[in-house]
Design a protein around this nucleic acid. Structure first.
Lengths: 249, 249
DNA sequence: CGGCAAATTGACTCCACTCAAAGGAGGTGG
DNA sequence: CCACCTCCTTTGAGTGGAGTCAATTTGCCG
């Protein structure tokens, strides 16, 4: 596979600011994030349990495997990856997280983080003490629904990724997934930046770094995308979707 | 990969009996199933929303991809597999479910089942109307905890299965997983039956059927297991765990 | 400018897949 | 009760897609 990787170490500064005036109601992610279904009054209530972080630098970790689990995190800006280190010392990337997505649901059951989570860009998060969220969700059915909904979609997504796909299919899928996620966040779905390295992509998709390069080159040769380093242009979405499709019925 | 597979079709009989006297409190799965953390009074309350099924025959489906989602199912006895059909018409097995395990969490978010779920042995289930469970869990914090816990562990498990493993590692892992799950159900962890076919195992592990045969033969040759058709004996657990291990830290 | 990591490209290898065939095991009907 | 059929499993032989190894190019940052 590949050798270990970057990991800005060193003593950690606290991430969270003094209880500042978060305002989910005025957050650009309103329609994507956890409180999206809440009415204004419930949203105000919800804001009381949200901890806004300072900016987090690329390479800075917000969770380490083994850390005690207390909070889930909503990405407010930037991009994160989660990963574990396997017995050969290699990094295995589990997933990427964009603004509005929630990190940490895999840690609830053992009350311990199993994965490391690191910023890939300058980012920020909202920390949510899980017990408080759970408790509040007992009073706010729509919040509870949302929690179940998000966890369910993570399960469903992970199941879909378990499929046995070729390198081209997997890469096409990732590009489609990112395009769709950027689109729903109001960004261009046809031109975007890959915050993650080729190695990260490779590890996430269970491929070799070289294979990512080669397949992206092949896609470019076929006129499906244009790629230059981190910048990706999708020239032929239909073709890309075609390559990524796995109809199930 | 492999050609499609068995699938007892035909008109479906209803699965659930007239509201019968379920008694979670006296169920052998008490300590494994959803209500395991509830006190006696709450358990009684919980029993009111449980629908016990008639026996379900091997090959009989309890969910079909596309079905409207209303209920999750707790396996009471037997064994199930969930699967989808991909664009090549091949079956992709997503998972196996043993008694006490809960099926259907991947369907909450879209309110539609994405996977087919079929009995591999003569089995039975308890149907749980999801909205009722969710509502009740707002009154019973321990039930809500349990729901979050189970979903979280499914996420965590799926993430672990995303790792890039060799055929031997994957098969060793599955055997270890089954052994552990049988053990926690009070069965022997060193001798058990594989309810699923080699093809099912292959599909689940993203391997060819022949590879399953070959690796099992290799494990047997190495004195790690003894396998005869569906019957598996684990002779050297430590070696098997060694093969399966993926330390993460 | 120099040093280094990321990305790309090429040559070769190998693990798991495919194709093919032969044994079981279980079920059905005469 | 046996013949027959079908599906599952096993085993062998050969192939191929992605990995490995290695060298080069590119971009970035001090």
């Amino acid at each position: 596979m590949d050798k270990p990787a970057m990991s800005t170490e060193g003593p950690t500064r606290p991430y969270f600011l003094e209880r500042s005036q978060v305002a989910c109601s005025r957050c650009a992610l309103g329609s994507l994030c956890l409180p999206r279904k809440l009415d204004p009054e419930s949203t105000r209530q919800f804001e009381n349990i949200v901890n806004k972080s300072r900016p987090i630098q690329p390479g800075e970790h917000i969770y380490r495997a083994g850390d005690k689990f207390q909070s889930i995190a909503a990405v407010r800006a930037g991009c994160f990856k989660s990963y574990v280190i396997n017995k050969s010392g290699e990094e295995q990337v589990l997933g990427f997280y964009l603004p509005g997505e929630i990190i940490g649901f895999d840690a609830i059951h053992e009350k311990v983080h199993k994965a490391n989570v690191v910023a890939l860009d300058t980012s920020s998060i909202c920390g949510l003490h899980f017990d408080s969220v759970a408790e509040m969700s007992r009073q706010l059915p729509r919040l509870q629904d949302e929690l179940f909904r998000i966890m369910s979609s993570q399960i469903s997504e992970l199941e879909a990724n378990a499929a046995d796909l070729s390198a081209e299919e997997r890469i096409a899928r990732l590009l489609c997934s990112l395009a769709a996620r950027f689109a729903s966040r109001g960004y261009s779905s046809s031109e975007f930046n890959l915050s993650m390295s080729r190695r990260d992509i490779a590890s996430h998709l269970r491929l070799a770094t070289e294979t990512i390069s080669r397949v992206l080159a092949r896609f470019q040769g076929a006129g499906i995308i244009k790629v230059n380093r981190k910048k990706v242009n999708i020239l032929n979405v239909d073709k890309l979707k075609e390559l990524a499709r796995r109809d199930t019925y």
